[in-house]
Design a protein around this nucleic acid. Structure first.
Length: 277
DNA sequence: CCACGATCCTGCTAGC
DNA sequence: TGCTAGCAGGATCGTG
C-alpha cells in the first residue's frame, strides 16, 4: 500500500476538491467484501445527500468527514488508489466502487488486489474507538524523542518488525522502514532493547526526515501508486536500499543485501548497518 | 508478549 | 513462446 507519505499526498489533494460536494450515491460496487461495517446498499442510504466537510488522515486511513457526524474511512492496503474524476472521464481499470456527487464528479476507489477496505462510523467517538489501538503520528509535535524512547523501553522484539507495527508508531510500511533503518545506520535484525541513546536519536530523527522528504516529493511510486490526481510520486529515485539488492550502496559501495524478516523483503547495507548486539 | 504462517487478491517478471 | 513459482506498498487471525 501506500505508506504515510502517499496517503498524506492523496489527502492533501482530495482536500482541495471534495469539501462542499454533496454525495449522490454509492455505485458500481463490484467487490462488496471491501465494506467492513455496512452492506453497500445500507452505506448508500446513509451517505446519500450528505455533504463532505473535510478530508483527513489517521495513520494510513483516509477519512471523509460528512455532515451529521458521519465518517467514511478508507484503507488502501497494498494497491488501492482514490481518484477524483468527472463522471464522464474514461474508466479506470480495477475500479471497485464509486462515490458520485451531485455535480457529475465522483471519487473512484481503484484497487487491483481488492485488499482495500471501507468503514462507516456514526459519531466521532466511534471513530476514535476504531483508531484507539494505533500508535502515535510520527510527524506531530507530540511525538517527541522522550515519548518515542518510552515506547522503545517497553519492547524487546526485532527492530524492523517494531517499525512496521502500527500499534507502536504509525505510517511506516516496508519501503520507509527499510529506508529509515539505512539512514539510522541500524541493522534491521537488531533487538529494540539493544539500542543505546545515540542510536535511538538517530532512529527518531530518521523516521521524521524520511517521511517529511517523501511527502515533499509526493510519495514513492513502485508500480501502481498514484496520487489523487493520477500522478506518480517523485521519491522513487531517492531510495537508498529498497529494491536495490545486489547494487552498490550509495555511501560506501558495498553490495546491498536482501533478507526476509516476518515474510517481508528487507534491504540493507551490511557495512553501513552492521549487526552488533 | 512474541514469532511465524496463512489468508485476503491479481498481475508482473524471472527463470526454466 | 509458454508455463509457473514467487513476489508486490498491509493487516489480521490462529497457532505454538
Amino acid at each position: 500500500m501506500p505508506e504515510l507519505p502517499e496517503v498524506e499526498t492523496t489527502v492533501q489533494q482530495l482536500r482541495q476538491v471534495l469539501p462542499g460536494r454533496v454525495i449522490k450515491g454509492l455505485v458500481q460496487v463490484e467487490w462488496p467484501k471491501m465494506f467492513k461495517t455496512h452492506q453497500p446498499q445500507d452505506l448508500n442510504r446513509l451517505i446519500k445527500g450528505e455533504q463532505v466537510l473535510d478530508v483527513s488522515r489517521r495513520a494510513k486511513f483516509i477519512i471523509l468527514g460528512l455532515t451529521n457526524n458521519k465518517y467514511v474511512v478508507f484503507h488502501r492496503m497494498m494497491s488501492g488508489n482514490l481518484f477524483f474524476r468527472d463522471l464522464s472521464s474514461p474508466p479506470d481499470k480495477y475500479t471497485r466502487f464509486v462515490i458520485t456527487f451531485n455535480d457529475d464528479t465522483c471519487l473512484r476507489f481503484v484497487d487491483l488486489r481488492k485488499f482495500g477496505r471501507v468503514f462507516f462510523f456514526l459519531k466521532e467517538s466511534n471513530l476514535a474507538t476504531f483508531f484507539s489501538k494505533l500508535g502515535p503520528e510520527p510527524l506531530l509535535s507530540n511525538f517527541t524523542f522522550d515519548s518515542f524512547s518510552q515506547i522503545l523501553n517497553t519492547r524487546n522484539g526485532i527492530l524492523k518488525s517494531f517499525l512496521l507495527n502500527q500499534q507502536f508508531i504509525v505510517g511506516l510500511g516496508n519501503i520507509y522502514a527499510n529506508e529509515v533503518l539505512f539512514k539510522s545506520q541500524l541493522h534491521p535484525n537488531r533487538k529494540v532493547n539493544s539500542l543505546d541513546e545515540t542510536e535511538r536519536e538517530r532512529l527518531y530523527t530518521a523516521i521524521r526526515q524520511i517521511l517529511e522528504v517523501a511527502i515533499e516529493n509526493k510519495g514513492t511510486t513502485l508500480s501502481s501508486y498514484m496520487d489523487g490526481g493520477g500522478q506518480k510520486g517523485r521519491n522513487t529515485e531517492l531510495l537508498n536500499v529498497h529494491l536495490r539488492n545486489n547494487q552498490e550502496c550509495k555511501i560506501c559501495n558495498s553490495i546491498i543485501t536482501k533478507i526476509l524478516i516476518n515474510q517481508r523483503s528487507t534491504y540493507f547495507c551490511p557495512t553501513c548497518q552492521p549487526m552488533i548486539n
